[in-house]
Design a protein around this nucleic acid. Structure first.
Length: 936
RNA sequence: GGCCCAGUGGUGGAAUUGGCAUACACGCGACACUUAAAAUGUCGUGCCCUUACGGGCUUGUGGGUUCGACUCCCACCUGGGCCACCA
């Protein structure tokens, strides 16, 4: 790190010719108007040249790692909404610099992905060129705002030296069996011509282009994120995680853990007599359902399976209306996601006539239906339907005339037993048929030996019974799915995988039963998750090993034929192509480049082909924060010592829209990197703060479409960067969405004009005791200490709006002391402290005024002022006198006035006397330093 | 439908976490400076009654707890966010 050397730059900077008196005080010499244009660019150059913000890898100072969600360099450029978060981290960083921290505050580019590619196709520019152009533009915009970034650590996800390590991490996941090839139906965007992850959807539409997404069966790479579901959930509540509840809640909902039970419903042989004893061990024909409401099982009146459930094919010969069922299934598959799950959904289904299922608790036979309101991809793909206590089942049962059987009543429910069971068909506790399902927990009725138990207790007992009989068990399910990780597009990281037909044969020749099972189902056996377990588990899992004297990794065994590119051959560079349009066939444009696709197998040297899909945009951002720590490392994604030094990120700021994507993906990757020993902590981001949007002046979201986009360049040209910085922080609470107001910007500029002006108008004095304005200044002293306290705490809490308001109050007082016709004396120390408080917010003007006071070094080499708690409190207060809670009088009193004295003062008040009149005083309440309340 | 958040002047918002509601700013009005305008400065600015002195009302609505509620509890209304047939 080069040291800040004022000598090097100082001479060019004596722009102001003001006389500095020998004692360093005296007139400041600034009497020109505040013109940000004249000072901001110069200070930016000076900071760059001096290297004042260069990060030291190791120093004795405590570390502070401040990070923003790195931007996607789009063709549109930055608008003022993007910069809001960046300004906040910059303020936090500058304050930490002043407090003596060694800071890491980097910036980089999340540049792979669909928007750039679509932009490139539209404008006929190669995505690489478009990216370079956009980055240059973004950087220019950012530099004008005066951030403390250390540009030596700039990263770019599309740089082969960066994505080499993205590929490396993927290979490690593959090696450990966390990446698998799959051919399940996935979300397909017909416009972007690629598959999308669940996280990339908004209401069943492509998050990028708004096109309705279709379900398409397609070969794809999937990361086994569900293996980390429990840890992703559990660690959210860890002490090390200082996140807003809003974001935590969103992640919890997304992970969607539910505890319940799996239950096997035996399928009857239709010819069996009704009273045949239920004999579970003698047959293997079951429908296995998942339920979180085992307590309602006595109310189950039918079962439903998803259209893709295997039971349908298996029982083809037994299902009497198979043609009808098949027709329904085809219909259901042709529905779009929206039709199937959308708002106006009408439930449909067909009974599987010819088979029935037996409720293991009642031994009753219930009909089995196929309906697309049951999802094949969640739980077991089959449910027990309890219309009385589930809304969906209730709707369905009502439509198709299926019975409703009540088994739960509210805890405090009183019902006449005579009415109850009067009508066996609808055993509602009241004489009237219930109009909707009672969904809450309650007390069991109609449930045999479980009657009168609470729902909670019943679930516990019933689960135990299931387990003892071997026909069911406790089961946890997650809404979160594995991460669909491949895209059929050009502008992304190539997969470092090669397909070798010869090695496929060898892998498949393995006789290991677990391997065979894994290959057949393309599934990795589940392993028991515990909060501290690492992946992969060591038992109940196929292992890496030798087949025919060749070493295969777990990934290579689970995905026969797929061979990892050797580490020494990384990165697998994205080849230059002329045509990068998506093909639409499900193949990436890379498939057409035969000289790139055809390679020798790294394992057997036979002819083989590269994987031609690319990784999704979120790949690079899942670990980029680690690379800033050690951006030039050629041997590993990050050096261990440096990782320990800097991680975790102390402050991470970005929009809430990433709560369920980037933040989940990054936590997943980080946990994996922890498991394989690359990082030392379980969580990447210690403190997370979410930034609210800035809308246009019309209240709508800023967009080209509405013509309401505000470009920071224009604001800076008109008002200056410091005004922009202050205004964005002053707009309102940081996390809130607020509309831009040009008038408000103007007001902020006026504030800075006044700050500049008081420097001109006030006579700086170094001598507190001899000051003509001693009394004035002693009031100022209290105010200053109050302001230091307020600003210090508010920055910590991201309450920038009130911090600025506090500085305005102080500055207004400076102004007052400068008026009255005469130039007033202002104690220099107060003004200096004020400038330091202001400097994180408005660094350019602070530096300029600091210099004008005769200081030779940057203001950022000073230290953050400390407040005196005694001075930060008022000496004298206005004691509020209330009668029956209403304010009736205010009396000046010492802040530490005692109870007796205060009460006496209150009662003696003329105004109070009038109101009390002849009524008697019942009680007098005293709150120290605040008020007296007289109750009459 | 589920989970979460918010509702305070003409506007953005503040309120030490149960103790002076409306800080700070925008806007508006009056005045000063100016030939004039802009800029700047001074004063005023929650609503209602009153010439005034003064009084009454006020934090989406209704109720509750409390000496005292923007703040806590219950119900409702309105707006926003995330998820959404997840059994």
């Amino acid at each position: 790190m080069s040291k800040y050397d004022p000598k090097e730059i100082e001479p060019k900077w004596s722009r102001h010719k003001g006389g500095i008196s020998p004692d360093g005080a005296g007139s400041t010499g600034i009497n020109n108007k505040y013109e940000p244009k004249n000072i901001e660019c110069n200070w930016q150059k000076k900071w760059n040249k001096s290297g004042i913000y260069k990060t030291q890898d190791f120093s004795n100072k405590p570390k502070f790692y401040a990070l923003d969600f790195f931007p996607y360099p789009s063709g549109e450029g930055l608008h003022v909404g993007h910069t809001k978060g960046y300004i906040a981290t910059d303020i936090a960083s500058r304050k930490k610099i002043l407090e003596g921290f060694n800071i890491l505050h980097p910036m980089g580019w999340d540049a792979f992905g669909l928007p750039t590619e679509n932009y490139a196709i539209k404008h006929k520019i190669h995505p690489r060129i478009a990216t370079e152009k956009n980055i240059a533009n973004f950087k220019k915009q950012l530099e004008k705002i005066g951030f403390t970034y250390d540009w030596d650590r700039e990263i770019n996800t599309t740089d082969p030296e960066f994505y080499k390590w993205t590929q490396w991490i993927f290979l490690k996941m593959f090696e450990k069996g966390l990446a698998y090839e799959s051919e399940e139906p996935v979300n397909w965007c017909p416009s972007c011509k690629t598959i999308l992850a669940n996280e990339d959807l908004e209401n069943g539409r492509c998050e990028r282009c708004g096109t309705q997404v279709a379900q398409k069966k397609m070969r794809q790479w999937v990361l086994k994120m569900t293996a980390y579901a429990d840890r992703l959930l559990y660690d959210l509540d860890s002490k090390d995680l200082d996140w807003e509840d809003l974001i935590k809640e969103q992640q919890k909902n997304w992970i969607g853990r539910s505890e319940g039970a799996k239950v096997k419903f035996q399928i009857t042989n239709y010819k069996l007599q009704k009273n045949t004893k239920y004999q579970i061990p003698n047959t293997k024909y079951f429908i296995e359902v998942f339920t979180t409401r085992l307590d309602t099982i006595f109310g189950c009146t039918y079962c439903v399976v998803a259209p893709e459930h295997p039971i349908i094919k298996n029982y083809e010969s037994r299902i009497m209306n198979y043609e009808e069922v098949e027709k329904y299934i085809i219909q259901a598959q042709n529905k779009t996601e929206l039709e199937r799950t959308g708002l106006a959904k009408e439930k449909t289904g067909v009974e599987l006539r010819g088979i029935k299922a037996i409720n293991p608790f009642t031994n009753e036979e219930v009909p089995v239906w196929v309906a697309d309101y049951v999802l094949g991809s969640y739980g077991t793909g089959a449910v027990m339907a309890v219309p009385a206590h589930d809304e969906r089942d209730y709707d369905f049962a009502t439509k198709y005339g299926l019975p409703v059987k009540n088994v739960i009543v509210a805890k405090n429910f009183q019902f006449p037993i005579s009415n109850f069971q009067a009508n066996p068909k609808s055993q509602t506790p009241s004489s009237k048929q219930a109009e909707k399902a009672y969904k809450k927990d309650g007390i069991l009725i109609n449930s045999g030996k479980y009657n009168d138990l609470t729902s909670e207790k019943a679930r516990e007992k019933m689960t135990k019974w299931l387990e003892s009989e071997g026909i069911g068990e406790k089961k946890v399910n997650y809404k979160m799915r594995d991460w669909v990780f491949s895209r059929q597009r050009y502008w992304g990281e190539p997969f470092p995988l090669i397909f070798c037909p010869n090695c496929k044969k060898i892998a498949e020749s393995s006789k290991s039963p677990t391997v065979a099972k894994a290959m057949a189902g393309k599934q990795i056996p589940n392993y028991k998750q515990t909060q501290n377990s690492k992946f992969p588990p060591t038992t109940d899992q196929p292992q890496a090993g030798k087949i025919q004297n060749m070493e295969f990794s777990l990934g290579e065994i689970l995905n026969p034929g797929w061979i990892a590119v050797l580490e020494k051959d990384l990165p697998v560079k994205l080849p230059e192509v002329k045509s990068y349009e998506p093909t639409g066939t499900g193949e990436s444009p890379l498939a057409k480049i035969s000289e790139w696709v055809n390679v020798k197998c790294p394992k057997c040297n036979g002819p083989a082909k590269r994987e031609t899909n690319t990784m999704p945009q979120w790949a690079g951002s899942s670990w980029y924060y680690l690379r800033y720590v050690d951006p030039k490392n050629k041997k590993a994604p990050v050096d261990k010592e440096k990782e320990k030094r800097w991680m975790p990120v102390d402050l991470y700021v970005g929009g809430a829209e990433h709560a369920t994507r980037h933040l989940l993906y990054a936590r997943f990757w980080h946990k994996f990197l922890y498991d394989i020993g690359i990082v030392s902590g379980k969580e990447p981001f210690k403190r997370l703060v979410h930034v609210g949007l800035i809308n246009g002046e019309d209240g709508r979201k800023m967009s080209k479409r509405w013509g309401n986009v505000i470009n920071p360049d224009d604001v800076i040209a008109e008002f200056g960067a410091d005004t922009l910085r202050l205004y964005e922080m002053f707009m309102g609470p940081f996390a809130q969405n607020i509309s831009w107001s040009t008038k408000g910007v103007n007001g902020m500029r006026r504030f800075l004009d006044r700050v500049w002006g008081s420097n001109v108008k006030c006579q700086m004095s170094n001598d507190k005791s001899n000051s003509n304005d001693k009394i004035q200044n002693s009031n100022l002293e209290r105010l200053l200490h109050k302001t230091i306290k307020k600003v210090t705490e508010d920055i910590e809490n991201f309450k920038f709006n009130t911090a600025i308001s506090a500085m305005m109050i102080l500055s207004n007082e400076f102004e007052k002391s400068a008026y009255g016709g005469q130039r007033a004396n202002l104690f220099k120390e107060y003004y200096s402290n004020f400038l330091i408080l202001l400097s994180p917010f408005a660094p350019h003007i602070a530096e300029e005024l600091w210099e004008s006071l005769g200081n030779k070094k940057s203001i950022f080499l000073e230290s953050w002022p400390k407040y005196n708690p005694k001075l930060a409190q008022e000496e004298e207060i206005e004691l509020v006198i209330q009668v029956n809670g209403k304010v009736r009088d205010k009396i000046k009193a010492a802040a530490d006035i005692l109870e007796e004295e205060a009460k006496n003062l209150a009662i003696q008040s003329e105004k109070v006397k009038k109101i009390i009149d002849s009524r008697t005083i019942k009680k007098v309440v005293f709150v120290k330093g605040r008020l007296v309340n007289i109750v009459i």
